[in-house]
C-alpha cells in the first residue's frame, strides 16, 4: 500500500476515499442496522437493506462533507427500507387510522400498571413491532438513537413542527397497545 502510494502520488487522494468512507460510515453501522431491523422486522432483510444503503451512500459520498454522518446514513437507510417495503410489504406502509384508538390516546393508562407491563420485555418488543412504521420509526430514532427533533425531521422528512405530535401519538399508541394486551390476559 505504502509502496503504491509512493509510486503513484497523484492518486493518493483517491486511494484514501474508501478509508475516508469507512471512517465515516462504520461507526454508524449499528444505528443503520437497528433502524433497518425495526423497519423490516427481519434479520436477513435488515442486513440486505444496510448493504444496499451503504452502496448508495458510497455512490453519493462525493456530495457529503462530513457533517452529521449518522443522520445522513440513517436517511439513506430509511429511504432504502421504504422503497423495499413499498415493493414487498405494501400492507406495512398503509396505516389504518383507528378513530377509537385515536380518541383513547388522551386517556393515559395507569403508569404503575404499565410499569409491570414494560418489564415484560417480550410484550414491549411485540407492541413496538406492531406499531405502524411511521410511529415505530420516530420512537426508534428518539428513544434508541437519541436523535433530536431536528435530526428526526431530517431523517424522516417529516416537517420539524410535526415531530413532537408524531412522537406523542406513537407513545400513546404504544401504551394503549400494552394496556390492551394486559386487559386481554385478564
Amino acid at each position: 500500500m505504502s509502496l503504491i502510494r509512493k509510486l503513484q502520488p497523484e492518486r493518493s487522494s483517491e486511494q484514501d476515499e474508501p478509508s475516508r468512507f469507512e471512517e465515516t460510515i462504520l461507526p454508524h453501522l449499528d444505528a443503520a442496522y437497528n433502524l433497518a431491523r425495526w423497519l423490516t422486522r427481519n434479520d436477513q432483510d435488515a442486513e440486505d437493506m444496510v448493504q444496499e444503503a451503504c452502496l448508495r451512500a458510497f455512490k453519493s459520498f462525493d456530495g457529503f462533507y462530513g457533517v452529521q454522518a449518522k443522520a445522513w446514513l440513517l436517511t439513506i437507510v430509511r429511504n432504502t427500507c421504504y422503497t423495499w417495503l413499498g415493493k414487498n410489504r405494501t400492507h406495512d406502509l398503509s396505516t389504518s387510522f383507528d378513530e377509537d384508538l385515536h380518541q383513547a390516546e388522551s386517556q393515559a393508562p395507569d403508569p404503575q400498571m404499565l410499569l409491570l407491563r414494560f418489564e415484560d420485555h417480550q410484550a414491549l418488543q411485540q407492541a413496538l413491532e406492531e406499531l405502524p412504521a411511521e410511529f415505530r420509526e420516530v420512537l426508534i430514532l428518539r428513544e434508541l438513537e437519541g436523535l433530536s427533533y431536528k435530526e428526526i425531521a431530517d431523517v424522516t422528512g417529516i416537517p420539524p413542527g410535526t415531530v413532537m405530535s408524531r412522537l406523542a401519538r406513537a407513545r400513546g399508541r404504544l401504551k394503549l397497545s400494552l394496556a390492551a394486551r394486559m386487559n386481554k390476559e385478564r
Binding site: Y33, P111, F118, H121
Partner: peptide
C-alpha cells in the same frame, strides 16, 4: 417509565 423500558429493554439491534 416507557422511556426507561425502551432504553433498558435490550431492544437495540446491533449490526
Amino acid at each position: 417509565v416507557l422511556r426507561t423500558a425502551l432504553r433498558t429493554g435490550s431492544l437495540y439491534r446491533t449490526a
